[in-house]
Amino acid sequence: IFAAIEEENDLLMTDEDVEEMIVLAFELLCGRRIPMLVFAYRGRWELAAALDNMEKARSEYRIAQATGLSRIRALASFVNNQNLKQNPEQETFLLQINHSADLLVEQAESFLDQKAETLMTYCLKAKKQPKSADMRWVKEQADVLSESLALWKEIRKAYERIGRIHAVLIKASERWEKFISTFAVSDDKLQIGKGLRGLKVLEKEIALDAEQKSDVCQQLAVFLN
């Protein structure tokens, strides 16, 4: 959800995410108060910068992960549509979009394997008996295969990106650890001061007052209509 907000891209949210946001909105309308802790750091700029870098890397990593997953789901939906098109009447095996990425990739891979094999076998037969070959079918199957292949490449690209960003995140977090150990006043003592410098923890609450509730209701009504 954070990834979708940061990227302003609704497609990074799943249906379940949307459902949870709607539930949360209704809970807030019913008067739920959600306690939260806010962390802030004031003090040495090196530390502040290191923390900033780490947070940035972390959020980029989250976005990359969400992007990868949405690419996988795009391929899974494509596979499902093809299976439905092929057997419109029978009960078809469909990929469960909310399954884990590993499982979806595995199933998509076997779809591509199967498509390629069927097409290859047909083409070899058609070469021997060109007159009885259904060229429209061959073209259709080739289009499906090439489109799934393109989606597969997208997934691969997204996952390579996740790997690269993960490395950046590890580096940033190592840097942060290094700064912490360099600048730490004492390793094992928690120092409590006036709160001008150091890590600040604030307790806040998310809740809606009457006016805000009315705003949310108006917005929800637009969506629901």
Partner: peptide
Amino acid sequence: PPVVVAPKRDWYKALIEARRLI
């Protein structure tokens, strides 16, 4: 994250064979 292998040679082979036929 899942291991996403490189596109397989068989996938390309089938595509090339089909395109040749068309």
